[in-house]
């Protein structure tokens, strides 16, 4: 009886020692994995201020937010009307222009310039670039067409161009992020 207890105690110690080694192994993996996530300076540099005073009606500019392009477009009345004429419920990603802009600033359409399909930069923000069949943006990589409210209308992209968090810090300055 005593002998048997001795044997069990010994097995227990061996198992415990191996388990401790396993815990140590997991402990080593944690920093090795987490070192690859965004570093403190990257996380801190996540707001961008943009001066929009020079953007005329019908024009768009590109800004950089978190190392990615942001499209800031000053919509014309015709573009606003075209966007509002569509029944939002019929869209792949149902949203109205109001939901995608700030109150009283419906003409300022601010979206990420990153196609929701696979991340290319759609055309249409630059002078003279094709704007696709729906007059908004057109992604040349796989042919996604966005309308004047930057909503997906045709092509493989699943969602509308993303609207980042932003606010108007004054009439002419937008703070993104």
């Amino acid at each position: 009886m005593a002998e048997e207890d001795g044997v069990r105690r010994r097995d227990f110690i061996n198992v415990a020692a191996v388990s401790a080694a396993g815990v140590a192994g997991i402990g080593v993996v944690i920093p090795l994995v987490s070192q690859m996530s965004a570093s403190a300076d990257v996380l801190a540099a996540s707001t961008t201020e943009v001066d929009i005073s020079s953007v005329q009606t019908g024009q768009a500019i590109k800004a950089i937010f978190r190392k990615q392009p942001v499209f800031i477009r000053n919509l014309t009345q015709r573009e606003i009307d075209a966007a509002n004429a569509v029944d939002a419920a019929s869209l792949r990603d149902p949203q109205t222009l109001e939901e995608r802009t700030k109150e009283g600033k419906t003409n300022w359409l601010i979206t990420m310039g990153v196609c929701t399909h696979l991340g290319c930069v759609p055309l249409g923000a630059g002078e003279g670039e094709p704007r696709g069949e729906f007059g908004g943006y057109f992604c040349p990589c796989h042919g996604s067409h966005y309308d004047t409210a930057a909503r997906i209308r045709k092509g493989p992209a699943p969602l509308n161009l993303q609207v980042p968090d932003y606010e108007f810090t004054s009439d002419t300055v937008v703070t993104i992020g």
């Binding site: 110690i13 061996n14 415990a16 020692a17 191996v18 401790a20 080694a21 815990v23 140590a24």
Partner: peptide
């Protein structure tokens, strides 16, 4: 320290 003591006992 704990793991090493276990290792030594083992």
């Amino acid at each position: 320290l704990f793991a090493t003591i276990l290792g030594y006992m083992s």
